[in-house]
Amino acid sequence: MLGEGVMWSARDNAVYWVDILGCSINRIFLDNGGIERFAQPDYAAWVIERAAGGLVAGIGRSIYRLDLPANARELIGNVEPDKHSNRLNDAKADWQGRIWAGTVPVSCDKPTGSFYRIAPDGAVTLADTPYTIANGPAIDPLGRFLLLTDSALRTIFRFEIGDDGTLGMRRPFICFEADWGVPDGMTLDEEGGIWVACWGAGCVTRFTSAGRRDRSIPLPASQVTSCAFAGTELNRMFVTSARDDAGGKLGGALFEVDPGCRGLAPSAYRG
């Protein structure tokens, strides 16, 4: 229904992704194409590898350690426990093993969401607010900056990151034109290029490190939601999508495209 949060696991030789509205975590093994789906008790927002083994997942407004295939969950903490109309959205781990995660109103129509930093000990810190649809963080592997989208504003913002994890001023970095779609999930390649899933435009688009629109890869689904590099050479790209209300047959599918470049290995959570 709403594919999101695609993530490569070298440890499992698998690609993970979530179906937020379908409340499931999914994985496909790249050696044999086998697919598994694991039902969750609430909106499945994201999944990230743990350095100690297993996974960490954002479910509803809660953060869990997750062991598969048993689908066993251990609660780490909660985000916005009093905001019952909100849920977790996109998240990524950084070079220090922290998680950066956004929240959105389930209705996606008002600025009640925020952006949080989750430490390895489970402590949750408000990093920035407000957001209507906090989406697709992408984090410099050297820890210099962080990119974050508010899809409702069609803008990707850039933040400097302090040594203590605090964010600098929110600065507009890429403002989407009308025919570019809406920026959603994103990832970085090894040259510093920024790959953005373009909701409503049926493509993933690469921007240079300076924010200049470079090229796009079209997909047979209009609502494209997230992208990640995968494979032992990190030269394969997997892309999620959402079911198309107009009836598109491939809306909601997971795609693989050839990006023509290599990506960066994802960081793991150290909690």
Score class of each variant (00 low, 15 high):
48 I>T: 15
169 M>W: 01
144 R>M: 07
58 G>W: 08
5 G>D: 13
269 Y>L: 03
154 R>S: 14
94 D>R: 12
114 S>P: 04
92 K>P: 01
210 A>W: 01
59 I>H: 08
263 G>T: 00
31 D>H: 06
215 R>E: 03
135 N>Q: 04
227 C>R: 07
183 P>T: 08
199 W>F: 14
180 W>A: 15
85 S>R: 11
96 Q>M: 10
5 G>L: 10
261 C>R: 08
194 I>G: 03
154 R>E: 11
3 G>I: 07
222 S>P: 02
136 G>V: 05
267 S>Q: 13
98 R>A: 10
156 I>V: 15
256 E>I: 01
86 N>G: 05
126 L>F: 06
35 I>A: 04
36 E>K: 05
87 R>A: 03
200 G>P: 05
238 F>P: 00
205 T>A: 13
47 V>E: 10
138 A>K: 12
266 P>M: 05
129 T>D: 13
125 T>P: 05
125 T>C: 08
88 L>G: 15
134 A>R: 04
20 I>H: 02
83 K>P: 04
129 T>Q: 14
169 M>T: 15
81 P>G: 13
204 V>I: 14
96 Q>G: 14
37 R>Q: 15
251 G>E: 08
8 W>Y: 03
68 L>R: 01
266 P>E: 11
263 G>P: 01
26 N>R: 14
110 K>S: 15
254 L>G: 03
107 S>D: 13
233 E>N: 06
11 R>T: 09
106 V>Q: 14
103 T>F: 06
5 G>M: 11
231 G>M: 04
40 Q>G: 04
183 P>C: 05
187 T>Y: 01
101 A>R: 08
55 L>W: 15
184 D>R: 03
153 L>D: 13
202 G>H: 11
253 A>I: 05
129 T>L: 09
263 G>F: 00
55 L>H: 11
9 S>F: 06
154 R>M: 11
146 L>M: 15
259 P>D: 02
67 D>W: 01
71 N>V: 00
75 L>I: 10
24 S>P: 01
29 F>P: 00
121 D>N: 15
99 I>A: 09
231 G>R: 00
120 P>W: 14
35 I>F: 02
208 T>P: 08
214 D>Y: 07
160 E>Q: 14
249 K>P: 11
91 A>W: 10
73 R>Y: 07
52 A>L: 04
108 C>Y: 12
129 T>F: 08
136 G>H: 04
77 G>R: 10
182 V>P: 01
27 R>P: 03
199 W>H: 09
72 A>S: 12
170 R>L: 12
181 G>M: 08
30 L>M: 09
204 V>Y: 09
205 T>I: 04
156 I>D: 08
123 A>M: 07
39 A>N: 05
253 A>V: 07
107 S>N: 02
116 Y>M: 08
107 S>F: 09
66 L>F: 02
218 P>Q: 09
259 P>C: 01
271 G>W: 12
205 T>F: 02
209 S>N: 07
41 P>F: 01
56 V>R: 06
226 S>R: 01
47 V>Q: 07
199 W>Y: 14
185 G>T: 11
88 L>C: 10
25 I>H: 02
72 A>F: 01
113 G>F: 06
149 T>C: 15
212 R>E: 13
43 Y>T: 05
242 A>I: 05
215 R>G: 02
175 C>G: 07
97 G>C: 03
157 F>W: 07
222 S>Q: 13
150 D>I: 08
166 T>A: 12
218 P>L: 05
71 N>S: 10
102 G>P: 12
111 P>L: 09
6 V>G: 07
